[in-house]
């Protein structure tokens, strides 16, 4: 069984948390690849949008690693990453709708993640809920 190494808390990567980390891993791969291609081939076309794309990639990678690890440090990092993710998808999603010209469909978060079945919008809520649930 899992040894509580997190101040008596349940590790975030135990039980159904394995699924959550897997989904985060998929988005880490998707966002990183997307940002990599954009920065390498079309950076001059839309620097702001593509830097945001890179930010989203970093957020997903950090969230994946932090949720996969155990311990209070990893848990704090996961809180920060998932909160940033929530703010990111809401802000970038809103900007991409109200200022579509400045935000071409260029990031995972554009249109609240509509290009990815809106999973990017749902994921941070599930992540925060899971962090709360496993903290009890």
């Amino acid at each position: 069984m899992d040894q509580p190494a997190d101040g008596g808390r349940v590790p975030t990567a135990s039980g159904a948390g394995r699924l959550l980390v897997a989904v985060y891993g998929v988005f880490a791969l998707a966002a990183t690849s997307r940002a990599g291609v954009q920065l390498a081939t079309r950076f001059h076309e839309a620097p702001v949008a593509y830097l945001l794309s890179a930010v989203s990639a970093v957020v997903y990678v950090v969230a994946t690693v932090a949720l996969a690890r155990r311990g209070p440090g990893a848990r704090r990092l996961a809180w920060a990453a998932v909160t940033t993710e929530l703010v990111g998808v809401l802000v970038v999603g809103t900007l991409s709708v109200v200022a579509a010209g400045d935000f071409p469909r260029a990031t995972v978060w554009s249109g609240y993640g509509e290009g990815y079945g809106f999973v990017p919008l749902v994921l941070p809520f599930v992540g925060l809920w899971w962090l709360r649930r496993t903290a009890r």
Binding site: S14, G15, R18, L19, V21, A22, V26
Partner: peptide, 18 residues
């Protein structure tokens, strides 16, 4: 690798996500 690192009922779900 992730599914087999902690074999449980959720391992199948992890493979399903992949």
């Amino acid at each position: 690798a992730w599914a087999w690192a902690d074999r449980s009922r959720w391992s199948g779900g992890v493979v399903a996500i992949g």
